[in-house]
Design a protein around this nucleic acid. Structure first.
Length: 282
DNA sequence: CAAATCCCCTGCAGGC
DNA sequence: TGCCTGCAGGGGATTT
């Protein structure tokens, strides 16, 4: 969803100006270098790789983006005016909020056609921004496994056989399947009725069928419901993603399970909070 | 190979 | 009311 909306805003438009914040580890490429490389370039394509986006540029280079947890992409409808937050389903005004560039807005791309600028804001700086030279590869991208939207039972089962980690950790491992975050992992495991702490090796083929289908369903649904804004529903500093209303277990510790009414449990797995129903999930 | 720990950063909730 | 503390989280690096 984010990719599709962003695509219209960056592909085929020539970048005229680039504004950044000060150097920080948000910028894998120093911001001044980044700006120098981007000015004058025209986007030729926008692809998603797991949680990464790459904007291909007309000189063969590319811009790599990762939204991290709190990353937000905006487009301005007119300079200096209210910003449309296109990771939201509805226009920002429906929530009565204005989005304006602030100290957390690390990147602004302004275009030669004087149309809407694109802004990348990230309060926590867990997001990433990198310029990739023509022909350059990124270790980050090369590490990624199969896109989780295309996860299938057989490859999941095969992966379960060769890894000695919990099934939750396996789902979160981007080198196994790219694109599953903490929330989606918990939700998919609930749908499949599998406990997150289960060793991956212990999953049956049938469970892998259920789990792979659940992962695909959860991701598809989340995309439908408003793209990747899910990450900021916990800290709704820019409006909540619509998928939050469909959570069944995530951040519902102590609240009743929607199926059996028993309290949802919470535990740490691989330093990540995990939520599940002790009764419904085996 | 796996798992634990740390780090980056800041908004927010809870305690007093 | 306001300050302080702790927590959360993606993912890479480092250590056990």
């Amino acid at each position: 969803m984010t990719r599709r909306r962003l695509k219209k805003l960056v592909v085929g438009r020539r970048i005229a100006r680039v504004a950044t914040t000060e150097p920080s580890y948000f910028f894998l490429t120093p911001p001044k270098t980044l700006a120098r490389r981007l000015v004058g370039r025209t986007g030729t394509g926008l692809e998603r790789h797991g949680k990464y986006l790459t904007l291909a540029l007309d000189d063969g280079s590319a811009l790599l983006l990762h939204l991290g947890m709190t990353g937000q992409l905006f487009a301005s409808n007119a300079p200096g005016v209210r910003l449309l937050r296109f990771t939201d389903r509805k226009v920002a005004s429906s929530r009565g909020r204005d989005f304006r560039p602030d100290s957390h807005t690390h990147l602004r791309l302004a275009f030669a056609d004087r149309g809407p600028s694109v802004y990348f804001r990230d309060a926590r700086k867990f997001g990433k921004c990198q310029w990739l030279a023509p022909g350059a590869t990124s270790p980050r991208l090369e590490r990624l496994g199969t896109d989780a939207l295309r996860i299938d039972a057989q490859s999941l089962y095969a992966m379960c056989r060769e890894r000695r980690v919990s099934v939750k950790s396996l789902l979160l491992d981007q080198s196994a399947f790219a694109g599953v975050g903490n929330i989606y992992a918990d939700e998919a495991l609930f749908l499949a009725r599998i406990r997150p702490a289960r060793p991956a090796r212990g999953l049956s083929k049938h469970e892998c069928v259920k789990l792979s289908a659940s992962v695909r369903a959860v991701l598809r649904r989340a995309i439908q419901r408003g793209g990747s804004t899910i990450s900021d529903f916990v800290h709704p500093d820019g409006g909540a993603g619509a998928y939050q209303d469909e959570r069944r277990v995530y951040a519902r510790g102590g609240e009743p399970c929607f199926i059996c009414r028993r309290p949802i449990a919470r535990m740490l797995i691989g330093q990540r909070s995990s939520h599940f129903c002790p009764r419904c999930q085996k």
